[in-house]
Design a binder for these strands. Structure first.
Lengths: 168, 168
DNA sequence: TTTTATTTTCAAAAATTATTGAAAATTCAA
DNA sequence: TTGAATTTTCAATAATTTTTGAAAATAAAA
């Protein structure tokens, strides 16, 4: 397999995976392209390489920079902005996880808590069953959150992984 | 908050969350409706309650049954099919996780392995860096997979969660 | 300042995904 | 069998999401 071919496959695969998990295909592909490139790339280079419009490239890059998994890089004597991806997997994977948790999971957990409380007093069979169902979900997500927070706060997620592999 | 209101909010929230994570809104809502209902529901009841078409209801239910998180329930003297949701959170959450891992993550992991191998011999600076990047991702996902498999295989995921909370 | 390069914005178009609903297929009781 | 009830299918339509591309805004050089 040619190096270029391998990179292209990586970019395509990443794009598909992103789509399946609710991440925009272009965003995922720009991320993959930057991950696969040693050198910083300009918007023009990204557009050309992925065959996407300037608007799309600009929006996608901006989102990745906002996520904190792609950095701007100034190159002396060049007016263009260049971009590089964070190469430490554990670092960027955790940033994505934290961002999605905060944006999509936390609000749901708040609502689950509300519903659990609001149905606390219900005396009907149906009401009690529903309360229990929501409470079960809420308790499980709370437990998972505790674990997630501990892992996120730690700078040694790699060690935690090894530890967990060891003891289980 | 009325019980009906609470249920509706649960259904809406679940639908939104599903959408954000690449699960069809109707599928997620049917799941939430069945989770929130003690009694088994027929396709007609689901259609009526969620205001969706027969086709949509049928497809959504089928998918949930395929996932193994909703069961068919025969009611004596009634020709209609009824459906109930698996109420054990840990059980259905794990089934969803296992299903999505198999369908969406495993193929990607296979491709990452291919790319890692195919770029093993590359002697260029760029090739070596790309190889390392992909390999890092691959090693991390492999570690996470090991953990996931252990949790999935265990029937006491709840205990594992408690254990992990304890030691970390 | 003026000019030129670069980035950003966003309405319009395209692509994708979800949903409908009626016809076809199936199932079951009479 | 026949016929009614129920389920399934799927082409057509609707809704949503993504992408484009050109104009506006911004930034840097002349």
């Amino acid at each position: 397999m040619e190096l270029q071919e391998a990179k292209q496959q990586f970019i395509d695969t990443w794009g598909t995976l992103g789509t399946e998990w609710g991440i925009n295909k272009s965003v995922a592909q720009v991320h993959a392209l930057l991950l696969s490139s040693n050198a910083p790339l300009s918007t023009d280079e990204i557009m050309e390489r992925l065959v996407i419009s300037r608007g799309n490239a600009n929006m996608s890059i901006r989102q990745l920079v906002e996520y904190g998994i792609v950095y701007k890089k100034h190159i002396a004597g060049d007016r263009k902005e260049y971009f590089v991806a964070e190469k430490d997997v554990l670092k960027w994977a955790m940033k994505i996880a934290i961002m999605r948790k905060k944006k999509e999971l936390d609000p749901v957990m708040d609502i689950l808590k509300d519903i659990t409380q609001a149905t606390e007093e219900d005396k009907t069979e149906d009401g009690k069953a529903f309360h229990q169902t929501v409470k079960d979900i809420q308790v499980l997500t709370d437990q998972l959150e505790t674990i997630a927070n501990k892992v996120f706060q730690s700078n040694r997620a790699d060690l935690l992984i090894k530890l967990f592999k060891l003891i289980v």
